[in-house]
Nucleic acid binder design. Structure first.
Lengths: 194, 194
DNA sequence: TTACTATTTAACAAAAGTGTTAAACATAAT
DNA sequence: ATTATGTTTAACACTTTTGTTAAATAGTAA
């Protein structure tokens, strides 16, 4: 049977993503999502059969989106320095849009005993090798390349995960916080690359 | 009425903390906690009246414990360098024990619109000032002291939050990961202090 | 117009989790 | 030995959330 695409299925997913990944409301119910999308709750079951299915789809897509971003930066045909700058810029832009997305993916990863695909690992290894080379040429402080990678992602992701707390701690508003986060693109690069 | 202390109330709290903060099982039910503690579920209601009460107590204690650790490092009568080393050592030790605790506190902070006490803010400001002085004396790369602080906590907390993912990504076991985390004490210090 | 698809409504069933109660049992303190 | 407290058991009520169904309505395409 031919199905008309009214975009509602996508709307539901996008709304769920927004609630989960932008607002960080991890415990939102199907009713919450339906309300936010402006549709009837029954429609969620109509399109996704169950909450779990919707949830899985959304998390899988989130994981893929993040994966794509990182992979495309990892595999870019660029000198290491530019590659690094690109990665930071793209990752931070995404993380500003969906500050809780990574946390979500990570916590789902914990629950489900998922394994990272070999293809990803290979790409990561290539990146780790490039880091090693850069270290040998003195462009990066010498250390375990894995530590370098952890540092990089820590510096990028953490301040966005904790944005709410930080805003309160430093008594700053959204606009100012956004400014701080934008400044971090250069700052992170300067911290890890000489 | 005189009450005998059998330690069971504490056992329940400790078990809850372990499940939440060490295992990262954010959605554990009262039954899960009772089972893990080896007691009857009814006892949770007996001691804490409701799940929420238990939950609040545990999160409040977690927040206080973290607060104490950070405050005691912030307020230590030590030169800045040693203060920093102490903070890193103590924070990482704690974070290794309870890798998800901070995440929990942060996500509860998001939900509850909690405000940071002024006393905390004052201590933080003092620390930020010390950072500024250290920057002026050239011991720390010049930047917004708040950025420095965010960097510091990012480098400390993030790799533990993502330990499960990292272990899979880098194909390493618990022992090796622990070794990496211990190495980070020196590594973080070296990254942010010259 | 007809037919088909999308969406809503309402009502209900089923499941999961939580809170309560009363009775029984265990055990340490007096 | 008695008493008070800690703990278990079982049963049940309540709430929240989810999943299902059938019928009604709206809208679009043929």
């Amino acid at each position: 049977m031919a199905t008309r695409d009214t975009g509602t299925e996508q709307l539901i997913k996008d709304t769920a993503k927004h609630i989960f990944f932008s607002e960080g409301r991890l415990h939102a119910t199907t009713q919450d999502i339906a309300d936010a999308a402006g549709v009837n709750r029954t429609l969620l079951n109509y399109y996704f059969r169950s909450r779990d299915t919707l949830f899985e789809q959304v998390v899988k897509e989130a994981r893929d989106e993040m994966s794509d971003i990182i992979d495309s930066a990892f595999s870019a045909e660029l000198p290491f320095k530019e590659k690094l700058e690109k990665l930071i810029a793209v990752f931070l832009d995404q993380a500003m849009k969906f500050p809780y997305r990574e946390m979500y993916v990570v916590s789902e990863f914990n629950r489900s005993e998922k394994v990272v695909q070999d293809a990803k690992k290979t790409k990561l290894k290539t990146f780790l090798n490039e880091i090693k080379i850069e270290m040998e040429s003195g462009k990066i402080k010498k250390m375990d390349p894995r530590q370098f990678c952890m540092n990089l992602f820590a510096l990028m992701a953490y301040p966005l995960i904790t944005s709410c707390l930080n805003k309160s701690l430093y008594s700053i508003n959204d606009v100012e916080y956004l400014k701080l986060m934008k400044e971090r693109k250069q700052l992170i690069f300067d911290m890890i690359y000489q």
